[in-house]
């Protein structure tokens, strides 16, 4: 028997926490099926399939039925482009920051060097300083460097270096590294170096030891770090806002842009898809991790 009593208070608190956390998401998803174009009022579900019929601002009938706004989303070239950008940025920045962050974590664990305490501390700085400060900093850096390079190489017109996808990717890599490093470091805390020594003792050189022994052992940490980096990159707004350029709009930036015009349930449909994707990734990683353990 569990010695802890489950009091009524704990039950109520639990329900409230869940309600507080998940009601907005549920409302958001329900509104993705809204028949009304204005996102503020719920006009009921779209029930009829067939060619598009509208009554004022209410959709009466749609080829996609209740999934009207999802279909609209698929036809929206801007959304598709933003999705492509977001995924490109997230994938490249995750892979890069995982490699760099893991290497940093291993170095901090293995070697002792003069600037080690400083290096460790410097990992926390990008995490604790306000994102907007970091965004402005990166923007200033890029514009200074680009101005200098454009001047130095006489670049003009289309060949000028400007903000765009590459700058967003670089800045995402930069802010993801500390997260990956800290997560991998946590995994390395209990890592006994005798495993690596045993591998070397049995004839494996440093590289083989890493791939056959070290890496499989820290893989759960690396995966968690990667997942963190991926989700951070997917929904980053502030830093992306400062480093993005024409043609490199990401989903958060696009949605923000929509909000200033009209909010149609398309935004909800987009968010619903987004929630679903992220939720699946989390489930997948959890499954992988529990299998590894």
């Amino acid at each position: 028997m569990n010695p802890y009593r489950r009091s009524l208070f704990i039950k109520i608190a639990t329900v409230l926490v869940y309600a507080f956390l998940y009601t907005p998401i549920i409302v958001l998803i329900v509104f993705a099926f809204n028949s009304s174009r204005t996102n503020v009022l719920f006009g009921g579900f779209i029930t009829q399939f067939g060619p598009l019929v509208m009554d004022g601002s209410t959709v009466v009938q749609s080829p996609c039925g209740p999934f009207h706004w999802f279909c609209e989303l698929g036809k929206n070239a801007e959304v598709m482009n933003a999705t492509k950008n977001t995924l490109t940025i997230a994938i490249i920045s995750t892979l890069s920051s995982v490699v760099i962050g893991t290497m940093a974590a291993l170095a901090l664990q293995r070697y002792s060097f003069k600037l080690k305490p400083f290096s460790q501390l410097s990992l926390y700085i990008p995490i604790v300083i306000p994102e907007i400060v970091m965004g402005i900093g990166i923007l200033v850096l890029f514009s200074q460097v680009f101005t200098f390079l454009n001047g130095a190489f006489n670049l003009a017109g289309d060949s000028r270096l400007t903000l765009g996808l590459p700058t967003v990717i670089v800045s995402h890599i930069a802010f993801s590294i500390p997260f990956v490093t800290l997560v991998v470091q946590a995994r390395l805390q209990g890592f006994d170096k005798s495993y690596e020594e045993a591998a070397m003792d049995l004839g494996a050189n440093e590289l083989t030891t890493f791939w056959r022994v070290t890496f499989p052992m820290i893989l759960p940490g690396v995966l968690s770090g990667g997942l963190l980096a991926f989700t951070l990159s997917l929904d980053d707004f502030v830093i992306t806002f400062f480093t993005t350029g024409p043609g490199s709009t990401t989903l958060p930036i696009y949605v923000y842009g929509l909000l200033r015009r009209i909010i149609t349930p398309q935004v909800n449909a987009l968010s619903a898809v987004w929630v679903l994707v992220i939720f699946s990734i989390v489930l997948l990683i959890q499954k992988l991790q529990s299998r590894a353990a």
Binding site: E197, A198, M200, D201, L202, G203, V213, M217, A292
Partner: peptide, 20 residues
């Protein structure tokens, strides 16, 4: 000489068996 080039093998106190 690194460990992987020495003609000796070790039994570790904590066994250090590869868990995976």
């Amino acid at each position: 000489t690194p460990p992987f080039k020495r003609p000796v093998n070790t039994v570790f106190q904590n066994y250090a068996l590869f868990q995976h």
